[in-house]
Nucleic acid binder design. Structure first.
Lengths: 123, 123, 123, 123
DNA sequence: GTGGTCTAGACCACC
DNA sequence: GTGGTCTAGACCACA
């Protein structure tokens, strides 16, 4: 369900948060659904449990997840709106990536070409 | 010639490298040209000489610059191909950023909108 | 495990790199093994942490080490082949040193004598 | 007559000195012979004249060369003995190279093999 | 003048 | 705990 890139410069706990936001934004997870237990997910992703714990903790703090004691973590009722808030971060990151590619010498045509390519690859 | 954003999350020495790659990719710097002396560039950018030295050192290691002892650093003969390699890297990063934004739940219209916005901001 | 000669003309960070290459080449360190933490090694060798950090950074760049964020540095899967590359470099350097000694006027008998002397000094 | 490696870690002026020592040690230059003028040699080797000047200056100081005002530099009468003294330096360098190759993981068999190879290449 | 190495120590982020 | 970046400044060697 979730994939992580250990070599990416973006922190693992951020990747986990973004992926969960995305799953909700795309409707693959809904309010009330349970998310994987910390230990389970940490083993699946080969990641330190502390890292998953941090991601969940922050998601709880922002109201995206709800912890039910002894039961686990669940997608909250306001998760969709939280996921939308988080899109802003993705927008900024994308903008940064574009400007950085420009500074490296990429032309606008190239940028659009890459967008098309991404569209194709996804399909 | 080169500008730096001190508040960017990307390290200063990386920005310097990218800017130099870009200057060669755009033909504003050619093989054989001398790049600013470490101390000079560090003063114009208000940055520590060590930081520039690190950027130059890595550029030398990748074959983009050549150091002539006691004389300075020069754009190498293979600099253009190295700049292209770096462009390839930028392309991949941009592609990844787009796919990641997609996974986060961003629609294609949004993506194109952000490209337009970037175009506008640059001007 | 690692020793340094502070009076050698070869930079400390280079010595550290060579020693690590050697430890892998001789099988005393294997892919997956953790190398000493930067601060730890810097204290045992009585050297500044930055110096060790530079050695490790370059080893990561050449693919000999892998950094796991917040965890430490580990011998990479391709470390053996990298160590062999480094051995190739040493071979070339030795060859050059011999030819240079020849050009300086050293006889072949002398060269062999020096090899014997080195053998003796090591023991 | 003389060749220089601009990328070698050993300073250019040192290379010049060693090469001249070698030419005398091998009998290709004799006391009384004239050595190339600084400007000539600097142009031949594509090297800064100051660098050649430094080499010659030090060779004069050690008694290997003699400057005849307005005429140029000549191999001195004691040049052979000076060249022999300088062999000590070459010996040390060779010894260093061997030990360094050992530290990098090279076996003694390999070292001897490389000596043989050098012998073959020279012939 | 040039670059290269090293030290000392601060600050940040990740695990 | 880990590594990464950056600053400040010393010292050396080469051209």
């Amino acid at each position: 369900m979730i994939t992580i890139d250990a070599h990416s410069p973006v922190p693992i706990y951020e990747q986990v948060k973004t992926e969960l936001h995305g799953l909700v934004a795309r409707g693959m997870l809904k309010p009330g659904d349970q998310v994987p237990a910390i230990r389970v997910l940490s083993q699946t992703l080969l990641v330190n449990p502390n890292t998953i714990a941090r991601a969940y903790r922050e998601l709880v703090m922002e109201g995206f997840l709800e912890t039910r004691r002894g039961e686990g973590n669940y997608i909250s009722a306001q998760a969709r709106s939280r996921a939308n808030d988080s899109l802003d971060g993705s927008r900024k990151q994308l903008l940064e990536a574009i400007l950085s590619a420009r500074r490296a010498g990429l032309g606008w045509k190239e940028v659009l070409l890459i967008v098309q390519k991404a569209k194709g690859e996804e399909a």
